[in-house]
Nucleic acid binder design. Structure first.
Lengths: 207, 207
DNA sequence: GTCTATAGAGCGATAGAC
DNA sequence: GTCTATCGCTCTATAGAC
């Protein structure tokens, strides 16, 4: 590693990520970012050309990761209960490292759906997923009740993600430190799978 | 009603609400709003002074309503199961009329917490709520399992709200019309209470 | 009450010195 | 590779005619 400390390009990317996450694409300015990175404003254009290119480059990896990890786990050929625990565990940990991402992703997509869906290559998923077949198969065996796969996914994701999106509400309800919030979220690693399983087992003999 | 059609102030408010919801405070411009309202840009300043005042005035009623309705229902002295059904039913209907509000509120608060919390008077709630006492009392009687009140609230809200926040994801999963989305959400009026009750009844004799 | 015209500031982006 | 200086544009907001 010859260049020791002042790798400007990396400093800009780190600063841009922080500022974009906080203020969104529209709210962030080159001035904000260059001050955060402690470099000259003109350097942003030198390295990345335009604001949009900087934005896309910074979130190119991480943005897609958050959406793809869902399907990577959902589509694994593992028992349903294991899958639910794995999903809650892995996704909670991922978001804990990037707690502002859920709101950021949803709001940026809502404000510019074409751009993001096109660039990040999020594609139309088939309705006939492995998870859908798994849920149908288990229901046919009578080990769980019937449930639509998308309903299942949205329930699971909502349970995992919502505390991060409603963090300001939680602040007003006494969960007002990062430590308390983390404890709250980690407790959900137990609650969420139990909730999903309790629902799925309703009306079956294993109930 | 003397002034028939051209009530500019109301046209501006309606246009501002639409544009702000779509683009956020930072992304929205007076040009966007005035074109949407089909009035001159200078009229926005004439009626509302500044962009921030326009924003606050437009969302003064509805913004707070969305947060307060939660507690209005949660704090009612009605049986727990009735409360859950009521919460899911009323909140789903409210959001269906304003499907962009959940993302809008969360992202605007994340980007400007002091301003919004101060202006809309969202205050620090006590941890000793009616709901908390109700949950503790039922658990003591053995009719439900023990659960922290905030965990209960976040689970319920996540289940209700997440489909609206993840609407773009749902579009890619085949739920790509307003009609299909509405049907999907209405189905949750049944699923969500059953899920909550299934969890609460786990380990009790009524299970 | 609504318009045109424009002020004044901040924005993203570029040119050119070093 | 990094800086200063500045361009051209768009933004919010105001002044003043009607």
């Amino acid at each position: 590693m010859p260049k020791v400390n002042s790798d400007s390009e990396e400093k800009i990317k780190a600063a841009a990520k922080k500022i974009f996450l906080q203020k969104g694409f529209d709210g962030a300015t080159f001035k904000n970012i260059s001050e955060e990175a402690k470099v000259n404003t003109a350097l942003l254009n030198y390295y990345f050309g335009t604001k949009e290119k900087l934005f896309l480059e910074v979130f190119d990896e991480s943005f897609f990761l958050f959406i793809r990890l869902i399907y990577q786990i959902m589509e694994q050929d593992i028992p349903l209960e294991v899958k639910i625990y794995s999903m809650v565990d892995k996704y909670t940990d991922l978001i804990l490292e990037n707690p502002m991402m859920p709101i950021f992703i949803t709001s940026e997509i809502q404000r510019n759906p074409e751009k993001l869906i096109k660039h990040f290559g999020i594609f139309k998923q088939p309705t006939d997923t492995f998870l859908a077949r798994q849920l149908a198969s288990e229901a046919a065996k009578g080990t769980i009740r019937e449930i639509d796969a998308l309903q299942f996914e949205m329930a699971l994701l909502g349970l995992i993600l919502f505390p991060f999106m409603g963090r300001p509400i939680m602040n007003l309800r006494g969960v007002d430190t990062d430590l308390a919030f983390k404890a709250f979220v980690l407790e959900r690693k137990k609650i969420i799978p139990e909730m999903m399983m309790a629902y799925l087992k309703t009306g079956t003999k294993q109930q």
